[in-house]
Design a protein around this nucleic acid. Structure first.
Lengths: 346, 346
DNA sequence: GCTGCTCTGGGTAACGTTACCCATCGCGTT
DNA sequence: AACGCGATGGGTAACGTTACCCAGAGCAGC
């Protein structure tokens, strides 16, 4: 454990000495606190610039604030999260807050726990948790200590804010679209719940139950076919293989996420079938890549940037003191592309 | 600025009181320091478990270490970075270190600067910087204060380690592949340098100059055509539009990154042309999506997981005291898919 | 029985910042 | 002339942790 001789950082004391004022005065200038004259501000600011002083967040943290927002992402592979982060960054950039991201794993609550602990240990001022799979109780436990905004769950908690797209509308759009094209044997790929039973407020659960509801409403209850794997390429691949093995096989697959839809495309191709000739495929999230001519995947567009931006605003509000819980919902739209078409006449 | 009444965290003092020992003793147990008996260790550990104590990183930071590794990513949209992060996480997970990610923007050195400052201000113990575009001097300035590993540059610095794939080999593979198919008018999409001139050690520069070299070696110097935009979908799109406007237009496009290749595919399709019928397209990175049957993009595979894993190991070594600089290079391979084919006979 | 060693445990002063308090000054009001 | 008040600046004690030092116990060797 060698201590490298980092050159000592410039501290508030150095600035104070250089400007010939007290550290208190410098601190006040830094924090825009009450009780500093214009002359004082200018003098201190000059010293700060001259010495290239930057506050040390660790020391600030010990006094309560870190100007840091922690973002928990299941994993960064999902391009939809990039939109969320872009929106968040845009919203908070002016406020002096910095977002730091940590991967939570996305499946195992134990991994999630470790990731969320890591943020709490680092005293972030607020947490944006994207698509948590843990229990609501655990979220509320966290929310008691730290301002919390949850993205992608339909909880109604008094302790944290929720930002979500209306997954019921989205899933309904997809299933209605496929039924409208003439499909009857429509299958669905969802994510297996990490905890025991289904958690009704998780987005994949809502997409799945909506699928079941709409199918039933159209008298297609007997054709309900669900593969519970995960919202990843691997999950979509495995799930589709499973669905293709059923007899008769489905004529359309509604994957709960684009990533899973990509896996579905791979599995269908591998089975020697074509899209949409033999099977129609639809996803969810409208990742940019879905718009590519070669891919042309029908999907559900939810405005990730707006969701991220809103999450940022809600977080700043909570940090500033708001305690009443807020829910923000965006309404998704269907983007029909070439991956869905009427089923082959038979 | 309301102070929410977070319940006070359990501190080392609480643990000490509960175990009826000194805080020093607790600290020693926490750090596995020398001078604690087995009995003491057991007693303290019991108190820790009983109270659910977790060290506060901010306070530790003030004494020097945060057990945090900062990762600077241009942006999280690029799926190749996900492989890197997976590798890194795997490597450091056992060590008690936590990786936190920050977006650096990827184009503007000023944005990069802000992001890297954010990490330094938070006293991370080490930094993994993926594909920085700033000057080498700036990297060395950072390296003087913090253990640094740079991924995706070919620098030979004495102050930081470099992890890279052999971009010269990779670019050569692509260009030779296209020439081997019979192409002569092969164009290239690269990233515009943020700073004034070309920085020879940046990966996009190496890919571009290798392209020029191989073209020249095959007597195709007159057909060299470069669009300098960026390694993003937008960049690929714009660059390809520009290239398609040239007369005669190229029969093949080598995009310096898969993301840019996706943009190229979109632009080509929009122009009413087909791939590979009218134009062949090749990318770089072998993002998973390129393997999709519908996409089938020829690309260069570099093992991101190994790169991330190695970067993690090098960082831990540096934190432990190594000062000699290391370079680690992986050799990429070509994955030929249907997006490249012989040019149309004419 | 004294010296000198190792082993174990604790006391204490930082680390850099800020919240809370108090002191001073100038000015207007009584 | 005495008083009160707002505006401005500074002193100081924390925040939780660890590095450095010292003290005492136990023990071996003379």
């Amino acid at each position: 454990m060698v201590t490298r001789d980092r050159q000592r950082r410039v501290t508030i004391t150095d600035v104070a000495r250089h400007a010939q004022v007290s550290t208190t005065a410098v601190s006040k200038v830094l924090r825009n606190a009450y009780g500093v004259s214009e002359a004082m501000r200018a003098k201190v600011q000059a010293a700060i610039d001259e010495l290239g002083y930057r506050p040390q967040h660790a020391a600030r943290a010990m006094r309560g604030r870190t100007f840091t927002i922690g973002v928990l992402l299941p994993h960064i592979r999902n391009p939809f999260f990039a939109d969320i982060i872009d929106g968040l960054t845009e919203e908070i950039s002016a406020s002096g807050y910095q977002a730091i991201m940590v991967q939570s794993g996305g499946r195992d609550p134990a991994d999630e726990r470790r990731a969320s602990d890591a943020l709490v240990d680092r005293q972030v001022d607020g947490v944006l948790w994207v698509a948590p799979v843990c229990t609501r109780a655990q979220l509320e436990k966290l929310a008691k200590d730290t301002p919390l905004v949850v993205l992608g769950r339909h909880d109604r908690s008094a302790l944290y804010d929720c930002v979500l797209d209306d997954d019921e509308v989205g899933a309904e759009l997809v299933v209605e679209h496929l039924i409208g094209l003439g499909h009857r044997r429509i299958a669905h790929i969802t994510q297996k719940d990490a905890l025991g039973g289904r958690t009704a407020t998780l987005l994949h659960t809502i997409r799945a139950t909506t699928y079941e509801r709409v199918m039933t409403e159209h008298g297609l209850a007997e054709h309900i076919a669900i593969a519970a794997t995960s919202y990843t390429e691997e999950g979509g691949y495995e799930g589709t293989r499973e669905l293709l093995a059923r007899v008769p096989r489905p004529t359309a697959v509604f994957a709960g996420a684009d990533q899973a839809a990509f896996g579905a495309l791979a599995a269908i191709h591998e089975a020697g079938l074509t899209v949409p000739g033999d099977i129609s495929v639809a996803g969810y999230d409208n990742a940019r890549i879905t718009g590519l001519a070669h891919v042309a995947l029908t999907s559900i567009d939810q405005d990730g940037a707006i969701m991220g931006k809103t999450a940022g605003r809600l977080l700043l509000e909570r940090i500033a003191g708001r305690t009443a819980a807020v829910r923000f919902s965006v309404t998704p739209t269907l983007v029909a592309r070439r991956s869905t078409a009427p089923p082959a006449a038979r």
